[in-house]
Simulated scan of single mutants.
Amino acid sequence: MESKTASESFIIMNELVLPNDTNTFGNLMGGRLMYWMDIAAGIASGKHCNAPCMTASVDNLSFKNPIKLGNIVHIEAQVSRAFNTSMEVHLRVWGEDSLHQYRYESNEAYFTFVALDPNGKPRKVPALIPETAEEQALYDGALRRRQLRLILAGKMNPDDASELRALFFKS
């Protein structure tokens, strides 16, 4: 299986915030944004492994600024690291106020997707090659984020999380 670069999975998805997408404050509902982000992450992970993928986890979804009715949502998604059968996808979200001509940061998140074979079972995914300094930083941090996800899910003993422990304990 041939490795792929992070940039090969990069996608941009755009949506217009309509009245049915907003809450009583005229802001895009968080659940609607998560739905769009899930679609974008699914497309990016599918591009990386050329297979159908399913969402395994969503973490570190940070809401920085609300996106208003009538604004455009820009979602960028890219695989930040591939493991055995799973991939971490990093997403960034911006809102754009077309009327006042400015763009603003709204959200950032990490989603984990698992590649599936024709029988719906997890299958191996290609390794990921980071090319830029930013891609390398995301790649390096992905193992620590993965260990934290596994600990919180009760699938890993904290004592076994060597990458994560290295942040807190000096040898």
Score class of each variant (00 low, 15 high):
residue 141 G to Y: 14
residue 138 L to S: 04
residue 33 L to G: 11
residue 141 G to V: 11
residue 86 S to G: 01
residue 15 E to Q: 15
residue 97 D to I: 15
residue 163 E to H: 15
residue 109 A to N: 05
residue 126 P to F: 11
residue 170 K to E: 01
residue 14 N to P: 02
residue 99 L to K: 15
residue 106 S to A: 09
residue 123 R to P: 02
residue 100 H to W: 12
residue 61 L to E: 02
residue 2 E to A: 09
residue 23 N to Q: 08
residue 74 H to K: 14
residue 13 M to I: 08
residue 145 R to M: 07
residue 124 K to V: 04
residue 155 K to T: 06
residue 137 A to W: 10
residue 135 E to W: 10
residue 38 D to I: 12
residue 93 V to L: 05
residue 99 L to Y: 14
residue 151 I to T: 06
residue 91 L to C: 05
residue 29 M to D: 09
residue 26 G to T: 12
residue 48 H to R: 07
residue 79 V to Y: 00
residue 6 A to R: 13
residue 37 M to G: 10
residue 142 A to H: 03
residue 151 I to N: 05
residue 96 E to K: 15
residue 98 S to P: 01
residue 59 D to L: 06
residue 34 M to N: 04
residue 98 S to F: 15
residue 63 F to S: 09
residue 166 A to K: 15
residue 166 A to P: 00
residue 152 L to V: 08
residue 39 I to S: 05
residue 14 N to T: 15
residue 93 V to Y: 11
residue 146 R to W: 05
residue 115 A to H: 11
residue 108 E to S: 08
residue 41 A to Y: 05
residue 4 K to G: 03
residue 3 S to G: 09
residue 110 Y to P: 04
residue 29 M to R: 15
residue 127 A to G: 08
residue 2 E to F: 12
residue 167 L to E: 04
residue 140 D to L: 06
residue 120 G to I: 03
residue 154 G to R: 00
residue 96 E to I: 11
residue 111 F to K: 03
residue 154 G to E: 02
residue 14 N to I: 06
residue 6 A to L: 11
residue 35 Y to I: 03
residue 110 Y to W: 12
residue 7 S to L: 09
residue 110 Y to R: 10
residue 109 A to S: 12
residue 134 E to V: 13
residue 79 V to F: 00
residue 63 F to I: 11
residue 46 G to E: 09
residue 16 L to M: 14
residue 12 I to T: 12
residue 142 A to S: 12
residue 87 M to S: 09
residue 162 S to K: 15
residue 86 S to P: 04
residue 114 V to D: 03
residue 52 P to K: 13
residue 1 M to Q: 01
residue 149 R to N: 00
residue 117 D to I: 01
residue 116 L to Y: 04
residue 23 N to G: 13
residue 57 S to N: 08
residue 115 A to V: 07
residue 104 Y to N: 00
residue 19 P to T: 01
residue 96 E to Y: 14
residue 164 L to K: 00
residue 20 N to F: 04
residue 75 I to V: 13
residue 126 P to T: 07
residue 4 K to I: 10
residue 19 P to K: 01
residue 52 P to N: 14
residue 128 L to E: 00
residue 87 M to V: 07
residue 105 E to H: 14
residue 106 S to V: 11
residue 33 L to C: 09
residue 130 P to A: 08
residue 93 V to H: 06
residue 167 L to T: 03
residue 114 V to S: 02
residue 92 R to I: 13
residue 76 E to P: 00
residue 48 H to N: 10
residue 67 I to N: 12
residue 78 Q to T: 09
residue 131 E to C: 10
residue 42 G to R: 14
residue 157 N to P: 10
residue 68 K to R: 14
residue 41 A to L: 05
residue 161 A to T: 09
residue 127 A to E: 14
residue 153 A to V: 09
residue 154 G to L: 00
residue 77 A to R: 01
residue 9 S to K: 00
residue 145 R to Q: 06
residue 58 V to I: 15
residue 71 N to Q: 13
residue 99 L to C: 05
residue 125 V to L: 06
residue 80 S to K: 08
residue 118 P to W: 05
residue 95 G to A: 06
residue 154 G to Q: 00
residue 151 I to R: 03
residue 31 G to D: 07
residue 9 S to H: 02
residue 115 A to R: 14
residue 83 F to L: 12
residue 147 Q to M: 03
residue 104 Y to P: 00
residue 89 V to K: 00
residue 98 S to E: 03
